[in-house]
Write a protein that binds this DNA or RNA. Structure first.
Length: 554
RNA sequence: GGCCCAGUAGCUCAGCUGGAUAGAGCGCCUGCCUCCGGAGCAGGAGGUCGCAGGUUCGAAUCCUGCCUGGGUCACCA
């Protein structure tokens, strides 16, 4: 409907321009739903954009545009010039109501688009190494990545969720040593805890479990290898369980080690060397990043012969391109932000489309309870884990709170509000409860022997109350919202939209005096049941995009 | 110090990529209904959009410079 209106406006603008002897392009104008309903259903700013170009006052141009537009093929009943030169358009009222039939016919397909049809997109996220339980930062990233993947899929993309991890190297060695030290301590043996070892209590837990199972059989185990394997297996188990509980499943777990094993790092090194982007200095191998416009060079291979993380990361991204993705999205915490340009530029230098690699960055999570910030210290290992928080609030609330904020910018997780079980206060429940109510109404209807109407059974023109039209308008915004959120990689918009929709629907249902869904008027009842169904469809779709359940009862 | 992000109501935050009188939730205030140490309904107050310039018919939004908070500047990942 909006698209048709836009086409009509473009045509009218072209005629208008021709009238002035201007054969230039039609400007990119905005067509939006004004905040103030008095300003009509849609407002168009084209006249103001053309004012300078045509040397005419904007209001005069808007007047002329209105004349050219006419009734836009029966779409528009009123067009008035307002303010500095807006053209406010009011649609024939049944146009909004046609929307109801569209939603009911589309069902769960409503809100899906095809802007990414046929595109292969990879979303890489979480990617936590198995050195400890998932932190809230990881939790946020997990939810952002997963919601993003859902949004992209809703626009027709073929999405691969990927988890990149490294179970080798220095940090894993320290992990093994830490577990070993705790194990020995627990059995009363002298043990030297590594200087930068992992302090967390979970290390002792792993050691204790080991002692339980193996007794003192590992006392004389040489080195840290078996301890490391044990810790990795255990910790990865925790991570997988947390992700499972959040409803997040990866298509690919990519082990950094395979890049070494298959010689991919060496290949990249050779390719970069061919392009004179590599040099040797101070015993190390360097990336000539300054030649790529970055502010300093970086080490690719340490003096010890071991690559830094950067080399495999470049190789990894080369490998991603090799798999034919049209877009590669890396979701990362702000602490990794500075590294991204090196990977991106290096991949570009290898001949790949650097712009196809995108970064979705997110800031950290703080936890607030009782008006106080809960101290998070990785060092002292007093941080709250995803698991603990999930235990407190459950996956739905967890996800909703994590996706509620735009990913740039800090997220303050209000634990008290999250634990709040009153549906009116907790926004996650508020949205879910709105969905429940569509089922509550259906149950009521069934008691009266009424079935939910099909798309062709509703006389949508019966929905005349302002609050009903407002609901329909809000429902109509959904597809555009999904498209925009996917395009901008900003899943938080969905959460806000749902909160707003629920904020219209809940009071509508609650107010049983002004209007009742189930009345003595069969036609009106059918129309309102249709509205309930449409609201349900959109809420269910929106909740699914966020990975929340859409319960029928609460 | 360089770079990145943020600064909007008492608090937590939106603000559809430059539009009209800047919004939501929580909190607060007032009335009504109940009068149970609770909850509901209706209404209300609350803003120099960090500061100062600039671009524009028009700026919370774009540009420049400052201020504040966080992040980051490893031969850690």
């Amino acid at each position: 409907m909006k698209d048709r209106l836009r086409q009509e406006l473009e045509a009218a603008l072209r005629r208008l321009l021709q009238g002035f002897g201007d054969e230039g392009p039609v400007p990119e104008f905005a067509l939006e739903v004004p905040r103030n309903p008095d300003h009509g259903d849609f407002a168009c700013n084209a006249a103001m954009l053309l004012s300078k170009r045509l040397g005419k006052p904007p209001r005069d141009l808007a007047e002329a545009l209105a004349a050219e537009l006419g009734d836009a093929g029966g779409l528009v009943v009123a067009a008035e010039v307002a303010g500095p030169g807006f053209l406010n358009l009011r649609l024939a009222s049944d146009r909004w109501q046609d929307l109801l039939g569209q939603i009911l016919r589309a069902g769960d397909a409503f809100g899906s688009g095809d802007t990414l049809a046929g595109r292969r997109v990879q979303v890489e996220f979480v990617s936590a190494n198995p050195t400890g339980p998932l932190t809230l930062g990881h939790g946020r990233q997990a939810v952002i990545g997963d919601c993003l993947a859902r949004l992209l899929a809703a626009q027709g993309a073929e999405v691969v969720r990927e988890y990149y991890f490294n179970n080798g190297g220095r940090q894993m060695r320290i992990l093994g040593e830490s577990v070993k030290a705790r194990y020995l301590e627990q059995l009363g043996r002298p043990a030297e805890f590594p200087e930068d070892g992992y302090q967390g209590e979970y290390i002792a837990q792993i050691a204790a479990a080991l002692r339980e199972r193996e007794g003192d059989a590992w006392l004389d185990e040489p080195g840290d290898g078996r301890f490391r394997e044990e810790a990795e297996r255990e910790i990865f188990g925790w991570i997988r369980r947390s992700l499972d509980e959040l409803g997040i499943h990866f298509d690919v777990y990519f082990n950094e080690h395979s890049l070494y094993a298959e010689g991919k790092n060496d290949e990249v090194l050779a390719l970069l060397r061919e392009r004179d982007l590599v040099y040797d200095a101070e015993g190390a191998v360097w990336l000539r990043a300054t030649a790529l416009g970055l502010d300093r060079d970086r080490v690719l291979v340490r003096g010890t012969g071991e690559p830094t993380y950067l080399l495999p990361d470049i190789a990894y991204h080369r490998e991603k391109f090799g798999r034919g993705f049209d877009a590669i999205i890396d979701v990362q915490g702000a602490d990794h932000f500075a590294q991204f340009p090196f990977v991106q530029k290096a991949v570009g230098a290898l001949g790949f489309d650097a712009d196809a690699v995108e970064l979705v960055m997110h800031q950290f999570v703080t936890l607030t309870s009782g008006g106080e910030q809960v101290k998070q210290s990785t060092r002292k290992a007093t941080y709250v884990t995803v698991d603990e928080l999930l235990g407190d609030v459950g996956p739905d609330v967890f996800r909703f709170f994590m996706i509620q904020r735009k990913s740039d910018g800090h997220l303050d997780f209000d634990l008290d509000l999250a634990k709040e079980t009153d549906w009116k206060k907790n926004p996650a429940y508020y949205v879910q409860y709105a969905h429940v109510r569509t089922h509550g109404i259906e149950r009521k209807a069934q008691e009266k022997g009424l079935a939910m109407p099909g798309a062709d059974d509703v006389e949508a023109s019966r929905l005349e109350l302002p609050e009903e039209v407002e609901l329909l308008k809000k429902l109509g915004e959904f597809p555009e919202l999904v498209e925009r959120a996917a395009e901008a990689r900003e899943p938080h918009h969905v959460a806000f939209y749902l909160r707003e929709l629920a904020g219209l629907w809940n009071p509508y249902v609650q107010d049983g005096t002004r209007h009742r869904v189930l009345s003595d008027d069969p036609g009106l009842t059918a129309a309102r049941l249709g509205l309930a169904l449409a609201v349900r469809i959109v809420l269910r779709r929106g909740l699914a995009l966020l990975g929340l359940s859409a319960p029928e009862r609460m």
